[in-house]
Design a protein around this nucleic acid. Structure first.
Lengths: 334, 334
DNA sequence: ATGAAAGCGCTAACAC
DNA sequence: GTGTTAGCGCTTTCAT
């Protein structure tokens, strides 16, 4: 990679002349600017990013810490973040916490020492369970803004982007009640994290409000075989005529299991679940889904963070954006 | 963030003393080392990464350019890369080319000017279709090593990690022939990229070698509705008794469609497809899959790159690693 | 045992 | 209009 120094030498001018010429400073003569630019072009000169960062004390880089890249939802959010960041001239450094508090701390620590201008993250399960938030606070007090999305730590003062999890399952359940469903079950593979609990509460509220049945809830744990669990859930609750799935896996397996058990979906039983478009394209009948608009969550998070970074002085009040889910009716409901 | 300068001032020693003390240089007196380390600890001092990078002319960062983060396969590879990179003290900057040549070029350009020590990438579709490779060559000649995986450009001299695509479908088809299947079809949603073509050729070879049927191939294009296409494919080819899917989407939809059309899987028809474990857990019966060991591909790519970076002087011959697929028999085959 | 100084590549305030 | 200089934070060689 060619440097200013080398260009300067070859052109017999000073380094600062070259720098100014390339930055279109009007201090420099037309003729010189032309000569400089030509040579720079020839050698395909690009200013060294590290030098710029060091000098200007900003990296134009965002640290993204996600608990799990294999989740379609999180991958999509990442996609949204990347696109929005790029639009504003930022790159992203991605770390995967793997739900581990230590890895989360470490990433914050490592990237926090000069590699990034701020963070976008979704809290690791372990951190959530233990309610660990000191590492976030430390990062923020070091001058690096954080935007949390989806799984947030309420006690940390920072910008947040969340989903209306409670309303989503509340409304989905209501919609099943409107279909005259009398035995609506709830299946969750994510009951240990905050959003999973919110989703269950939304379902519970709708059921209790109606007052015609008790909640019927299946919580699948990490070590369980989901197919077996769901099968025995169906066996035990014969009369069940609708399912709300807290996550795509629960929903997809429930739908397929129902079909496999000889039930007609949606005549005998309706299924709704948090899932993506491609998930619903992969089931027969197509799964009715609660869409989270993951990309938009990413976009919003990136916007918030970049705004915060570039207006650090302004010291604006922290914002929480709610990205509303939408219920997309497909063929697995009436 | 506290700097050496500030520590030095507070301790009334010089910057270089602090630096040496923290780096355990034996030039510095025991007592001083202790004092320095204590204060550094107190202030939670971390050396600034940008300064280090600039000084040592290495960033300990890897640029990863993938065509699409929403592909489970690519997300998994990314996971493998990240883990292996971290193990060696590297971070990763992720760019998503979105299958676009321009974005690929731009990412190479942007990150190539000092942000990373090398690249791991899978070639964008557009670049592959147009056989554009100059940008790769330019990057390499700038001293930045590249490791390509999965979709590689054969004419670029660099380390590569590939899958035995041809053998995978060849063997899968053979295995269906051994099941006495007489009308084996092939469905692909990825026929425009290199690996898609290899997979088709593997299927073709097995069919032609056997000589008992003609290849029956369905190529789905981006604008098509895959469900409709596959449905009419089944209608047109009534006697079909086995499917090889070049990608998970084709396989999953084919399996579900067969069930929906009243066929018994695997009694009437077998289905094999490139897919992940979670994909096969989401179908009934569980899909027999060709596993690509995506994580291992990522690990291998990261290993190759880091080795290349850290032994740049050695100028070793370029390697191509083949990560073999495995055929995991589940319930969608006999 | 400690410190001064140079230099990584760049920008910008300040000479001339 | 062009050049000199300082400085971002750090390591390291070379004095002292």
């Amino acid at each position: 990679m060619v440097t200013l120094k080398q260009l300067a030498k070859e052109l017999n001018v000073s380094i600062s002349t070259v720098s100014k010429a390339l930055n279109n400073s009007d201090e420099i003569g037309e003729e010189t600017v032309k000569r400089v630019k030509e040579l720079a072009n020839l050698y395909n000169y690009r200013p060294n990013k590290m030098a710029l960062s060091l000098k200007q004390n900003k990296t134009k880089t965002i640290g993204v810490i996600i608990p799990n890249i294999l989740s379609r939802f999180l991958a999509k959010v990442l996609f949204g973040i990347e696109r929005e960041a790029n639009k504003h001239g930022y790159n992203i450094i991605t770390c995967i916490s793997n739900e581990s508090l230590d890895k989360e701390k470490e990433s914050l620590q490592l990237l926090g020492s000069g590699s990034v201008d701020g963070f976008i993250l979704s809290v690791a399960q372990e951190s959530q369970v233990n309610n660990e938030i000191d590492h976030f606070k430390r990062t923020i007090s070091n001058g690096l803004p954080i935007v949390m999305f989806d799984r947030v730590a309420h006690d940390v003062m920072c910008d947040k982007v969340i989903v209306d999890d409670f309303d989503a399952t509340y409304n989905a359940t209501k919609s099943l009640i409107r279909e005259k469903r009398k035995n609506i079950g709830f299946i969750s593979n994510i009951n240990d994290i905050s959003v999973g609990k919110l989703r269950e509460r939304g379902y519970n509220k709708a059921i209790l409000e109606e007052g015609k049945q008790e909640p019927i809830v299946l919580k699948i744990k990490k070590k369980d075989d989901p197919q077996k669990k769901i099968k025995s859930f169906f066996k035990k609750n014969k009369g069940i005529d609708a399912i709300v799935g807290a996550d795509s896996s629960s929903g997809i397996i429930a739908l397929n299991m129902a079909v496999d058990l000889g039930l007609n979906v949606p005549k005998d039983i309706s299924v709704i679940a948090f899932a993506s478009k491609s998930d619903s394209n992969h089931t027969f009948p197509k799964l009715t889904t609660i869409r989270q608009h993951a990309k938009s969550i990413g976009t919003n998070a990136a916007e918030l963070l970049i705004h915060r970074i570039e207006n650090a002085a302004a010291n604006e009040r922290m914002k929480t954006k709610i990205v509303k889910t939408s219920l997309v009716k497909n063929k697995s409901t009436l």
